[in-house]
Amino acid sequence: MRWRFTRNLGIFLFWKAIKMASLLVAISFLSFLLVKQSPIDPIQAYVGADMLNVSPEQRERIEEYWGLNEPIMEQFWSWGSAILSGDLGTSMIYRLPVSEVIGERFINSIALMSTAWVLSGIIGFSMGVLAAMKKDTWIDRIIKWYCYTLASTPTFWMGLLLLIVFAVWLNWFPVGMGVPAGVLAEDVNIMDRIKHLILPALTLSIIGVANIALHTRQKLIEVLSSDYVVFARARGEKGFTLFWRHGLRNIALPAITLQFAAFSELFGGAVLAEQVFSYPGLGQATVEAGLRGDVPLLLGLVLFSAIFVFVGNLIADIIYRVVDPRTRKEQSYAAK
């Protein structure tokens, strides 16, 4: 049975890998086409204000040098094969290799996103459990009201609100950016970084809580009215023991997988929150790249975020397969 399980997991991962590859091909093709059709002029974006000094002949030579006059499929092909060999190109606004920009930005973002992810997961889960255990009391009502309000709150608005209250009025936290302005890079200490991280992370967590809390509440209410909880109560279990033995066991898995599957919302939220706080993460880089026509960076980010979200979903899937006995031991007694 052990061997069977490993083999099944192997087959599962193999198909997932194929899915991921085809997804990436489709996404690169689509985004490449979209960028080609967009009004972004790569030469203008590259040269910038000096465009006035570029004569039409020079322009043509640049086009030829870059291969912009070739058919679109051939352009896609040369870009695609470069990517396959690991070369994502050079970012026009940072004048650095795209992979380097993404790597550096990702480290900033991962600090922000993982803080928000863990916080919203823990707080949201606890809130959901509390609401369900105290269903129809004032606690439940407050939590529900809070979640519905937050679920309809735009991230950037929440960010602005926190900025006004905590940075401008109370002056507790810096207004923006990842490190203090006017300080040498080597003089920046970890406390400075944490201080700059708190507000954007808080923004993301506050928004992220609603989803997981409402989902957990619903799921736990369902579990608490199930036959097996009725039977557990009939056997004298109650209160916290009952929740610990049967409630938590049955809601933990869906909650964890939901949290992993929420990577896409996390990334989307980070784009907005980072923009509000001028936090130098992936999200801000995405907005910059889009606004200033940095095509290689934009495409690199699109691919990266696709992988990021895919990995989140993949982890959720794998957890279900490995942890849930109903999928792990597919062979039931009846089938033997």
């Binding site: 036959d227 009725v230 039977f231 009939a234 056997r235």
Partner: peptide, 20 residues
Amino acid sequence: LRGKEIALVPQSVSFLDPLM
């Protein structure tokens, strides 16, 4: 008394915790 002096024998397997 529940579970100690009075015990219930429910009707089907759905009364058992599926993950225990």
